[in-house]
Write a protein that binds this DNA or RNA. Sequence first.
DNA 1: AGGCTTCCGTGACAAATGTTACAGGAACCC
DNA 2: GGGTTCCTGTAACATTTGTCACGGAAGCCT
Lengths: 201, 201
Amino acid sequence: MTLTTTYLQETFAGTFELALLTDMAQAGLYKRVPTGAYLIRPGEYIRSVPIIIRGSVKIMRPDELGREALLYYLGGLDSCAMSLTGCLGQKKSEITALVEEETELIAIPMEKVDEWMCRYSTWKQFIFHTYQKRFNDLLGTIDQVAFHKLDERLLAYLRKKTQSCQCTVISITHQEIAQELATSREVISRLLKQLEKAAHI
Amino acid sequence: MTLTTTYLQETFAGTFELALLTDMAQAGLYKRVPTGAYLIRPGEYIRSVPIIIRGSVKIMRPDELGREALLYYLGGLDSCAMSLTGCLGQKKSEITALVEEETELIAIPMEKVDEWMCRYSTWKQFIFHTYQKRFNDLLGTIDQVAFHKLDERLLAYLRKKTQSCQCTVISITHQEIAQELATSREVISRLLKQLEKAAHI
DNA sequence: AGGCTTCCGTGACAAATGTTACAGGAACCC
DNA sequence: GGGTTCCTGTAACATTTGTCACGGAAGCCT
């Protein structure tokens, strides 16, 4: 599919000025990415900045071996700050971005990201707003990991999950939860049992 | 003290262009801040972006009550990304910045931060470089908290501390360490004993 | 049916961390 | 000297989390 200015206008109603939308239509690349695909993996170079239109992307941080801590989710009209710094700094990615639900996105080539920054003030605002959101996400993650016990973190995790997928039922294996909270399956099993009991009282 | 372009030239040799330095000399405010002072506290508004010339500033994240997790340190020629987003977004601070060693800094008023972004490419680079560094710092912190046990974290903490203060002897109470690692004093006592023993073997 | 895989439940135990309680040393002030 | 405060050491115990070992349920393939 090719991007049309009209489509962009519907999507970004109010946030971007017309001239910018026209530029985006021309320079941006529309992509539809299926569940399970990776947008980026550690070690790869980042050459464009994605803006998520619809769907859900999970950003994770791997450790030396195997484990991957959950950092945050990207949803509608979010963008990734990691990609921004990565892009502008020409660095390899330090994170993994996994598509959780089929995602539509617009990929903006990095030269444009830079160029528009001075040309369009709404773009500059968007970029910094993105930074701010991601920073707060990370701070939130640190809060969780540093100050809260696993049961609370598990609850928070489940809540966020239901929010981000807009549904009331979650289908996921204990194993996956365990990975994202950097613990083991048995522990999650145990805690879920506990919560279940506690809920009955 | 007033800022002179010559002083700035010495300090930022190579990183900033001359015209920018002249602007900085005019708009920037030189400050010398004593150990123990706060640059910012949660809830306060940020009206300028500090660039640290010399010294050491500790950035912490408080939880609902009392505890404060260590996020990272700012040292020579560092700047704070939180202040950037805070500034440009007009938000209240979510963090605490405590001066650990007497610090000299230049405070740049936020209008200038914004204005120079498009005028001076070296400034833009500096800003994004700052973002990138802080982001990586945060990721490192998450790594530590999520994947490592307390004894490793303690070691890493001590190492960083000796680095940042450029000395071989640290003088700090167990209590403080405990706070920054979000644990209790007794635990730190215990672990330090352990490490001590282990070192003797 | 039988065999395979994946996921879940669970008990028993080990290790790590948090908590409580108390004692002693050093510094300081009166 | 006596009193105070701050810091450290340490023992005992509670709680939380990690690990191991195993068994059972469901699905899928032949």
